[in-house]
Design a protein around this nucleic acid. Structure first.
Lengths: 114, 114
DNA sequence: CAGAATCCGACGGGATACTG
DNA sequence: CAGTATCCCGTCGGATTCTG
C-alpha cells in the first residue's frame, strides 16, 4: 500500500502507470523534455488532441508535479509549459519505451489459429 | 509513421504506450514475469479486476504477442498464461517504472496557490 | 492566445447470470 | 475452472461556441 499526491495504490508500479498511463501524457512529457512549449504549439504538434483534452492532461500533469505552468502576464496571454525535476525523472522510463518501440517497429504478430 | 500488428502510430513511443497503457496490462505483465499463472490465480491477485476485464486485457496482450495462452485439454479446464519473449522484452520498461514508483512513494506535491 | 463552458454520443467497464 | 452473455450506467472525449 503506497500513496502519491493523495492517491492510494497497491504497489509502486500501479502508482507509476496511473501517472503516465493513457495515450497523451507520455507524448506530452516527451516533447516537453526537449524544451518549453506553449499551449498552441502543443496543440499543433498533436492535431488529433482537442484543446479540452490537452488542457485536462496538462492539468493532471501539473497537479502531479510533473509539469510546470509558467504564466507571462501580458496581452495576448503567453503560457509556457516545462518539465519539473520530477518530470525529468520520468525520462528513463520514456527512453526505455521509445527504445522498445523503435526496435519493434513494423512487427507483425502471427495470430494463433483456432 | 510506424506500425505494430496492423495498427498505425505517429511514433514509437505512441506505439509502446498503446500496448501497455492503461492500469491493468503492466500489472498483468509484471506478475506473469515471475512465472505462469492461471486465470483464477490472476483473478485472486487482482480482486478489483472483473473477469470481463481480465479476459479482455489478456486477449489484447495475447493478440499483441506479449502473452501466451496455454490450454491443457482436460476437465476441469486448465489454462496457463505465460510471457512470450516479446513480453519479456518489456521488462526493462516495467523495471524502470517500478524503480521510479518505489523511489517516489508517499510523495506529496504542493499545489500551486491561485 | 489560452483556455472555459456546454452539449451530447460512444463506449469502457461493473454487476450479475449462465455454460462447456 | 475458465470463461461468455447481457444489461446498464457513468465517464471519456469530440464538436462547437464563447471569453478575458
Amino acid at each position: 500500500m503506497v500513496t502519491f499526491n493523495g492517491k492510494t495504490y497497491e504497489c509502486p508500479l500501479e502508482m507509476t502507470i496511473d501517472l503516465i498511463g493513457g495515450k497523451w501524457k507520455v507524448l506530452l512529457l516527451w516533447h516537453l523534455s526537449k524544451g518549453p512549449l506553449r499551449f498552441n504549439e502543443l496543440s499543433r504538434i498533436f492535431p488529433h488532441l482537442s484543446t479540452k483534452m490537452l488542457t485536462q492532461q496538462l492539468r493532471d500533469l501539473e497537479r502531479d508535479g510533473l509539469v510546470h505552468r509558467n504564466i507571462y502576464p501580458q496581452v495576448p496571454p503567453k503560457v509556457e509549459y516545462t518539465l519539473t525535476d520530477l518530470g525529468h525523472s520520468m525520462m528513463p522510463i520514456l527512453q526505455e519505451m521509445n527504445r522498445w518501440g523503435t526496435s519493434h517497429i513494423n512487427t507483425q504478430i502471427p495470430q494463433s489459429d483456432q
